[in-house]
Each structure stands twice: as C-alpha cells, then as structure tokens.
Design a protein around this nucleic acid. Structure first.
Lengths: 216, 216
DNA sequence: GATATAGTGGACGAAGTGTTCATTAGTGGA
DNA sequence: TCCACTAATGAACACTTCGTCCACTATATC
C-alpha cells in the first residue's frame, strides 16, 4: 500500500499535522484542539471516577460530561482500561521538590503526610486511590502510574528520617524502607480495612508512636 | 387480598414453605434447593471475581458459571452490588478460635499472619481483597463484612502481644491498636501501593523490625 | 399423591457498546 | 487571506447486555 512517489506533484504532503497518537507519545507540536479535547476528557473521567466509582467511567458518560462526542472519546482512549487510566492520572500528585524541612521530625512528617491524609479522609479521593490499587493488579501501565505516585513521597520521607537521625531524634540503624512503610501502611490499612477515621488526629498518633518507638 | 378462611377447607395453606428471602434472613428450615442454588451462585461469583475482577461478576456470567438460570440469579441477588457482596463473602476467612500460642512472639506473629500474607501474594486473592476495600467505600453492608473479616484477626494479635509483654519481649506500655496496624499496614501498603513482593521473607523482616523496635 | 415454592428458559423492550462515514470546524503554512 | 489537512461531530448501524415477565417444569414436604 506504499504511496507511489511519482504521483501528481501537487499531492505532496505539504502540511503534515501531528496526529493524535503522536501527540499522546509526547514530543510534537501539539494541536490545540487535541490538547483541549484530551483535557476535557481526562477531567470529566476523573470527576466521574471520584463521584460515582469506576463503573461510572464509560466512554458514553465521560463524553457526555466532557461535552465531547462519543466518537472522539473512543479515538483518544480506545479501551475502557485506557479511559480509567486517564481518570486516575488526572489525580493531582503533590510535588515535593520544594519541600522545606523543619527542626523536628514530628513537624516534618506531619507536613509530608498532611495531603496524603487529606486524600484518605475524603471519600471520593479514597475511591480513586482504591481504584488505582485494584486496577494496578491487572494493568501494568497503571502499576507504573502508581509507582510514580509513590516515588514522589518516598525520597522526601527518607530525607526527613536522615535529618532526624543526624539530630539524634531517631536511632541510627533505622531501617528506612520499613520505617516509611510502617507509617504509610498504618494510614492506608486503617482507611481501607477498618471503619476508623483517618484524620489529622490519627496521623499525629501514628507519628508520635513511630517516634517514641524509634528513638535512639 | 386476605384469604377468606371460610373457603373450601382443602384450600388451607397446609404446607407453607419458607421463601427465599426468609431463608436469606437466616433462621428457617432451609429448602435444600435454595441452599444448593445459593452455594452454586456464591462459589461461581467468587471464582469469577478472583479470576477476572469485579467487572466480570454479572448476573449473566455468574448464572452461566453456576449452571443456574439468569432469572434465578436475579431472584437471589437482585442487584449487582448484592452479587458482588456474595462473591466477596465467599472468601474463606480463617478461624482463629483454636489458635495455639507458642513461646515467642516472632513465631506467633508468623503463624497468625501466614495466611494473610499468602492471600496477599496471590494475585487473584488480592483482587478480591482490593475489590472489598473499594466496594466497602460505597456499600455499608460490605463494610460490615470487611470489619468482621478483620475482627477475626485483631483479638488474636492482641493476645499475642499481651503474652509477649508478660514474657518481657515487648515494652509494657505498647499501644496495641497502633502496633497491629503497623504490622498489617506494612503488608497491605506494600502489596497495594508498591510493586515489591509480599512474601514470607518480607513478613519476617516486618516482624523482626517490629520486635526490635518495640523491645522493652 | 397433593400442594406449594424453586428453578427454567424463552421472549421482550430498553439501554449500552463499538464502529463507520459523510460532514463540519479549527489549525498552521504559504 | 486562502488552502491543505486533520480533529471533532453526530447520525446511523448491528450487536450485545440488562432487567423483567410469564407459563412451565422440577423438587421438596406433608
């Protein structure tokens, strides 16, 4: 099916525009129509996911909520899995690049986990997170999204621990890997496997327990 | 529509049978047909949930897998939520009534969490658990199921802690509530929010860390 | 065997899914 | 400003799934 290059010279591809898939891949002068449409779709998908759960995220509902035709939704996200992934990726992940460490560990941990806890205490955001956890079990691409999400958190916590060790707040032989899993885990476990509230108060309790137990 | 009691005496309700809903409620001489059908449906639903995830659990698929007519599936579980709940309840929850405590905490914890970890390291069982966590956010009835599931685990762990305290393996002022959340949480968090494996080795690491940190 | 309920399977309209296609709208280069 | 090109549209399509209904058969108890 290769085009015959000896065809009518006026039929040259003179103004090639990047197509949808090329833009999705990343580097290409973006067509504003594509950007607009994609943003509308991902926003709508995320909102629907938070509000009504994963079952509510279909091409039809999303297209309607995004004021976009159903056909377009299929063009951008051919499968339901891709649509769901887009919805989950719409989650605003906190950037810790500019995090400023304070003078004591408790304050640092409170600041770091504040937003995490806020997400957990919000039912809609929790639905989104639980959906991510569930889907990541099937969907390798989504598992990567999840890992990137967590990759934001971990180095900041590790740094906080290191500072605390330097200050003598924590024992020097602390297992950093287990330490951060302990704190995050207490929050996640309590949110998703118990009926107990996960709020600032509980976070404080977890942090205090952690510090008291890991003091030198 | 009250029956006229003066009607033909042979038309008395002579052999009233309990209906489906009464049996579902619990106490009633169970109709073997109902028991058989229910078991077939819940088994099939659980298997489907584990194998293909919650989206695969519909009245049609379950009925087909259970060799039961679609109509019957609707009769027993009128909504999809009810069907999913049945699937999740089919999870065999370990009974700890007969648990025998040993002479050291590490062994006790290993034995207690062994099955929990086995579930987490199995992808299918993990799907079931993640579905439970997600659905419990919408479905109050399912939240209760989840709590009952956890209620099996907690007292055994608390007892293990208490024995350990008596033996001098743990500090006496240990916060039991946070302690068990710490261990369970490390496992759950690592399973559902990281790509790292949760296996016997990891469990040992968690337990060793916990004990070393909470020693008197 | 009489009687009552559970389970069956076909049929149904309604709704949803995934695709195609001719048409319209919006974009950037000439 | 015009033009070539692609994105987006919406109507139409065959197809599947959903939930419900009903006459009928199977099975359990007395």
């Amino acid at each position: 099916m290769a085009d015959d290059t000896s065809a009518n010279p006026t039929s040259f591809v003179m103004h090639p525009r990047p197509d949808i898939d090329a833009c999705a891949a990343g580097h290409c002068e973006p067509d504003p129509r594509v950007e607009r449409t994609r943003a509308a779709i991902t926003d709508a998908a995320g909102t629907l996911l938070r509000a009504d759960g994963p079952d509510a995220v279909t091409h039809a509902t999303v297209a309607s909520a995004a004021n976009v035709s159903r056909t377009t939704a299929y063009k951008h996200y051919p499968t339901r899995a891709a649509l769901l992934r887009a919805a989950i990726e719409s989650m605003d992940k906190h950037e810790f690049g500019d995090f400023e460490f304070g003078d004591d560990l408790a304050t640092d941990l409170r600041n770091i986990f504040m937003e995490f806890v806020a997400n957990l205490s919000d039912v809609e955001q929790s639905k989104l997170m639980a959906t991510m956890m569930l889907q990541a079990l099937h969907d390798a691409a989504l598992a990567e999204v999840r890992d990137e999400f967590m990759a934001e958190l971990r180095p900041v916590i590790s740094d906080a621990f290191r500072h605390a060790i330097e200050r003598g707040e924590l024992r020097a032989d602390l297992d950093l890997e287990l330490a951060w899993r302990t704190i995050s885990g207490s929050l996640v476990f309590t949110r998703f496997l118990t009926s107990d509230p996960v709020n600032a108060e509980f976070l404080d309790r977890v942090i205090d327990y952690f510090i008291s137990v890991n003091a030198p």
